[in-house]
């Protein structure tokens, strides 16, 4: 297949771009929401989480796709879990070594990448039936689609909830009420339930633009 069509042929590029909008893992396929929301109260952990998920999805897709013809069908879930768990351990150790503060903030959610539905979903639906290179691209695409939503949520939550982005204060200090100004952070944005409501609103906006996604 790769000889007849280029490495970045149209079909392969579509694997990368489709998950960003029409087949977005979070807003359309409803996969991987578990970890998506808890890490989004600030931008930095959200970006780290997206990158970790993208790496794990891409490489587990690649590995499973390479050994897909040798896995007995009955034990495939266990094989998938072992491959994914190994990759997640690697990511976790790297995070602990180089980004210790973010890794503390992410707590159990790095470990939960193992049972992230995006991974199992893509492995079952794509990697088991496709060649390694398209599977790798599909992994990157889905990781990026996941990351896009995560970063959007984190952007609004950090901006409105803490008045900062990536830890830098954007709202001038003299604007705040306690310094004699008129502005106050919306503390509700930091609370967990707001993440769900923001996702709901994102879905609402996306589906009003793309009416073919509307349910019922």
């Amino acid at each position: 297949m790769i000889e007849t069509e280029g490495i970045f042929s149209k079909k392969n590029l579509r694997l990368l771009t489709n998950p960003l909008s029409n087949a977005n893992p979070i807003t359309v396929l409803v996969l991987g929401i578990c970890s998506a929301l808890a890490v989004t109260s600030q931008l930095k952990p959200a970006v780290v989480m997206s990158v970790s998920v993208t790496i794990v999805t891409a490489f587990s897709n690649l590995i499973i796709s390479m050994i897909r013809n040798t896995i007995p069908n009955r034990i495939r879930i266990i094989v998938q879990l072992v491959v994914v768990a190994t990759l997640v351990i690697l990511v976790d150790q790297v995070l602990k070594a180089f980004l210790y503060d973010v890794s503390k903030q992410l707590t159990v959610f790095v470990g939960l990448i193992i049972t992230n539905c995006i991974l199992m979903g893509r492995l079952e639906a794509f990697a088991l039936g496709n060649k390694p290179w398209p599977s790798f691209l599909d992994g990157i695409g889905n990781g990026a689609g996941y990351g896009l939503i995560l970063v959007t949520i984190a952007f609004f939550r950090e901006l409105l909830g803490s008045g900062s982005l990536w830890g830098y204060k954007l709202i001038p200090q003299e604007w705040y009420i306690e310094n004699g100004g008129w502005y106050a952070n919306n503390g509700m944005m930091i609370l967990p339930p707001m993440a769900l409501i923001i996702v709901g609103v994102i879905i609402w906006i996306q589906r009003s633009k793309k009416t073919e996604l509307i349910e019922d």
Partner: peptide
């Protein structure tokens, strides 16, 4: 419910509201 919000969208928002109640 407004059409684009049906199904998934409204479920998210309701979960959020239930979360606020649980707080």
């Amino acid at each position: 419910i407004p059409a684009p919000l049906r199904g998934l969208g409204i479920s998210f928002i309701i979960t959020g509201l239930m979360g606020l109640a649980f707080m």
